[in-house]
């Protein structure tokens, strides 16, 4: 559904656009002595305000590199092509010295490991105040006062005292709350959350998911939620894209994707999970491994592991096309 809207709206103006984030034909290439590697390959999607897009896939599928490209953080050797816009403003052409205006203010990110995302030698209140001081032009005093409010917003008890704590004095869950407070301090249009609960225990994970949903309702930002955990994504996302070897292989609403997965990779991923409500003695498996992303790969990147693959799959690259309204699949064997 959303992809249709993307196509039918050429160059929406910044204020009128209901889309907080639009990504069109995003690719990331790395070249080395071994040749060119395309780790993100022609990825397109959009997220409306107040909506959550789940991005799932296994390690090396390009989900984190996509996020880094959105923030202009792809390592220097990498070459980013394609169009990215935040609330209608294109980011592709902006100069390097303009990035700080965007990053942290319009697009913010929450990382997997809260301990490494925070400065261990700086009080958490100061870390949040720094964001507000730089981006909102608040004085340090005002920024410190706002920082306490932000800590209160993310549910940290006695925020005025806690603002003086250092990261090591907090538990993992509290640290992730601080990282979220920092990311949301400037009320960004888009929040990228890259495996935000992976390092946390299940009971703390549930608290953080609850918090993110509440803040999204209050602030109305678009969220791109990246995770390898299908169950977490099924609980938090409105729409989901499944990535494999740098490409989007399936896109649908969360309800549709998890009740009616069409791509053999998505089907395989869901089937391999042990399920508490339906125990099987032997779990289905996806045979083989993710292919090497060098130039030699032809046809569908999943063909080597796919039970349905035939000569067509090994020769021709499948395109992402609509199978039913709002459900896109890149597979030769899935027809409308």
């Amino acid at each position: 559904m959303r992809s249709n809207r993307l196509e039918s709206e050429p160059g929406p103006s910044r204020l009128a656009s209901p889309l907080a984030l639009e990504v069109d034909g995003l690719s990331v290439d790395f070249s080395s002595h071994e040749g060119n590697k395309r780790v993100v390959d022609g990825v397109s999607y959009a997220i409306a305000r107040g909506q959550t897009l789940g991005v799932v896939g296994e390690s090396g599928c390009g989900k984190s590199m996509t996020a880094l490209a959105l923030l202009g953080l792809v390592p220097k050797q990498g070459c980013v092509t394609g169009r990215i816009s935040v609330s209608g403003q294109g980011l592709s052409e902006i100069a390097i010295d303009e990035w700080p205006e965007i990053r942290g203010k319009r697009i913010a990110m929450v990382f997997q490991e809260p301990m490494t995302a925070l400065n261990p030698a700086m009080r958490i209140g100061d870390q949040i105040a720094e964001v507000l001081h730089l981006h909102e032009g608040l004085s340090w005093k005002e920024a410190r006062e706002r920082a306490v409010e932000e800590l209160r917003l993310v549910g940290i008890p006695s925020p005025a005292e806690r603002a003086n704590a250092y990261p090591h004095q907090l538990s993992g869950g509290m640290r992730q709350r601080v990282v979220i407070a920092m990311a949301l301090a400037c009320r960004p249009d888009v929040l990228i959350a890259d495996e935000p609960t992976t390092a946390l225990d299940v009971t703390i994970q549930a608290q953080i998911l609850e918090l993110m949903q509440r803040l999204q309702d209050e602030i109305g930002m678009a969220v791109q939620f990246i995770s390898h955990n299908l169950a977490v994504v099924s609980e938090i996302a409105d729409d989901v894209i499944v990535m494999y070897a740098g490409q989007i292989v399936e896109r649908a609403s969360a309800d549709e994707l998890f009740s009616n997965p069409l791509h053999p990779y998505t089907q395989g991923l869901i089937a391999t999970l042990p399920k508490i409500e339906n125990r099987q003695d032997e779990l289905p498996v996806i045979p083989g491994m993710v292919p090497r992303l060098d130039g030699t790969l032809k046809g569908c990147r999943f063909a080597g592991r796919c039970v349905k693959a035939d000569s067509e799959c090994h020769a021709l690259i499948p395109v992402l096309r609509s199978i039913s309204p709002g459900h896109d699949v890149a597979c030769h064997k899935v027809r409308p």
Partner: peptide, 9 residues
Amino acid sequence: AVPRIGQGR
């Protein structure tokens, strides 16, 4: 607290 597929938000 265990997330499960098919429960939605």
